[in-house]
Amino acid sequence: MFESTGGVFSLISDSGPVVLFVLLVLLLFSVVSWTIILFKAGMIRKAMKQSADFLDYFFEVSSIDKVFAESERYRSASLARVFRAGYIEYRALSEKKDARLSTERISRAIKRESNAESRRLGRYVAFLATVGNTAPFIGLFGTVWGIMNSFQSIGQAQSASLATVAPGIAEALIATAAGLAAAIPAVIGFNYFSQQIALVERDLEDFSTEYVKSFVHELD
């Protein structure tokens, strides 16, 4: 408070090695979680938009061959990808005319692709939850450590004046601040992406049966 006039950075430079390490870890966490947030935000937005466009086209056009040709344009759309997997399976079966077996195989292929799509969308998102849960604790650890050292040095200085106590505590609190700064966006991102991914998954589930029906109809 007194001698430390350079603000946050002078506090950081005065910190001990453990607090510095904690700050470094938190900075890394923050960078990675922001990378994931930016990456996923673009990915999910694109997937949802293209899925909606693809669905429009799917209901407009009756021929599944045409839809398949068009689905090339919707590479990021989860619904289009699942449709393509179903179509490829349908093509492989087209010679065999066993409808019950064909339906089963097509549904299985679609189910498989839906799961893969869920996994693809949800990849890395778990890390956001990890950062959101652990970063405050890591920061707290840095703070506790810093305060411990600060009290030790107060004991050595044999003075409990504010001037002796305050800088150490301010240094230590930087770690908690950094932890919160890393955790808050991560938690917000995690909640948002979880909700969006859940929406896409529900769509996949809903339209899987629709696709199967259209393929079976084509087979008959």
Partner: peptide, 10 residues
């Protein structure tokens, strides 16, 4: 895209 996001984050 991942690398781009990383650069933006940095």
């Amino acid at each position: 895209r991942l690398v781009t996001a990383l650069v933006i984050a940095l």
